[in-house]
Design a protein around this nucleic acid. Structure first.
Lengths: 295, 295
DNA sequence: ATAATCAATAAGTATGAATTATCAAATAGA
DNA sequence: TCTATTTGATAATTCATACTTATTGATTAT
């Protein structure tokens, strides 16, 4: 006696409510009429209410049945929709990829990735957040981020890395500086100037790399200022407070009175890598990864 | 192989999604663990998607499972309500409206609404529950509640809001306090006292508003205690542990040795709003809304 | 190493949804 | 009135499958 309502009941009920005829409804459902009769009866028992009036050759809905019909239609539709959505999310066609990036990555790879994603998987949402290397690693480990773009040589266990872009370094000088593309030979020509660099804790790899560039030319740079924003660094150079060494692509996207001298002859490169958790379960991420692997 | 999803699956799924532990979930459901395992597996097969990740001693939800969990919660709640409504209609009633409210709303609008409903639609049942702002919003989204009375400036997408009552703020002081309606000019006269306020997470809007009242008079209040019950706040004031600022109508319905000074001259108002789901399907709610629109 | 704990698998049971066969009641046609 | 036909409800039976117990393999903790 103590049964539980099941979706089967709803489907049967709806058929009868539409046909208002047990035999026809049973036919439509590909079951026998007695089976349908008992199931509807059971349903009425569970709900404690009459749903149909059967008198003299006629089946009709009670007010309660009328109300239930509308609800069952809604519920079954909603369910169908939900099933579809679940499948889509499981297949990675729908969902969200949370991306973090260093400011300096905004010039190249990230915009391409976003455009490609939008085009190939328009139903995948993306959220973007500019974060430091360290903040990105922490966020990925805590599952607040799916994908990061960092400049790091090593990452904690459990994370995967893949280099996605190699950039040369460029010297950044005030426009009025005597050195230019024509007379520039080697970095030791500016060995005695003040240097403005990105902070160590913003990107230790960058900092070490810049130091090694100078070391290769036999001098230790005097670092007068440090910042975490390219904007700030360029502004300081513009005001002749020092010179800088930055990844070359950083020159695009700013309106500053500074000039860039690309140093192609040195071996160091600014490597941008993407990082993600090895066992990330977000299927939408896989799609993004597949896309990036092709780039 | 060609099974059909049933409500049983959803109930089982929800138990596992909540416990994230098959044996415990099975215990809660009063079935055996292997039975539960096979049912969940079958469910995943029907949906064509992995819902749980079982690896090394740990069960967790996939994104698809995460999504499904929210949907299942909604569906099961909605179903429960539908069953109730059907029964009520079958018994000759119009239905049920589930109302939530902040404690501070009990003094004015809610009682009027209830009385009006009872008079015009004596066959509509109402259930009342005192809940925080946040709890009300969650309950409405999950279809556990039809109508809420909250103090919020913004609500999530999919919900409608309508202000129903504007209240001034009053200062609450111990009876023996030197300040009274006669000599009170401005709130800065109590700038150096301790303040007892409703907790931020109970009603962020209230908290912000009270701070802005003080700010307008050029001081930052020292908040010594926070509570979620008006009763508690008044008790603390009575015992001279501080003073409070509350919506004026809160003064009715309590027997306390405190006095109220209404601050009509300040611009801030305590706004009580009603909230409901835009696509709520409860026909009884419509009736209640019509009534409230007239008030 | 040993024990403990987890979910998955295997085999058997039992619940209850289905079937077929039949009935009672009502209508329609002669 | 009689019969034929149609309706949904019962009764008896069959059959699918959700469930049980027993066990395994994998992993972790002591």
């Amino acid at each position: 006696m103590n049964y539980q309502i099941e979706l089967r009941h709803f489907i049967y009920f709806l058929a009868v409510a539409e046909e208002l005829h047990y035999r026809k409804a049973a036919e439509k459902l590909f079951i026998s009429q007695p089976g349908l009769s008992t199931q509807i009866k059971q349903m009425e028992e569970i709900l404690g209410t009459q749903l149909f009036v059967r008198d003299k050759k006629k089946v009709s809905l009670t007010p309660a049945g009328e109300f239930l019909k509308k609800e069952v239609e809604f519920i079954l539709n909603h369910l169908e929709q939900t099933k579809k959505q679940v499948k889509l999310i499981g297949d990675g066609q729908l969902g969200e990829v949370r991306i973090g990036f260093l400011g300096s990555a905004m010039q190249n790879v990230v915009p391409d990735l976003l455009l490609g994603l939008k085009e190939k998987f328009p139903t995948i949402h993306t959220t973007l957040e500019e974060l430091s290397n360290r903040a990105q690693i922490n966020a990925i480990l805590a599952d607040r981020l799916d994908l990061g773009f960092v400049r790091l040589s090593r990452v904690p266990k459990g994370l995967d890395v893949r280099p996605v872009f190699e950039d040369t370094f460029s010297l950044v000088l005030p426009e009025e500086h005597p050195l230019d593309k024509g007379n520039f030979r080697n970095i030791d020509q500016v060995a005695n100037e003040d240097f403005i660099l990105f902070s160590q804790d913003y990107s230790p790899m960058y900092y070490d790399t810049v130091l090694s560039i100078c070391e290769d030319s036999g001098f230790v740079p005097h670092v007068s200022h440090k910042s975490v924003h390219a904007q700030t660094i360029f502004k300081l150079v513009e005001n002749k407070l020092g010179i800088a060494i930055v990844p070359t692509t950083l020159q695009y996207g700013f309106q500053m009175k500074v000039k860039f001298i690309e140093m192609k002859n040195i071996k160091q490169r600014a490597v941008l890598s993407m990082v993600w958790k090895t066992d990330n379960r977000n299927p939408a991420l896989q799609k993004g990864m597949d896309l990036l692997m092709e780039l």
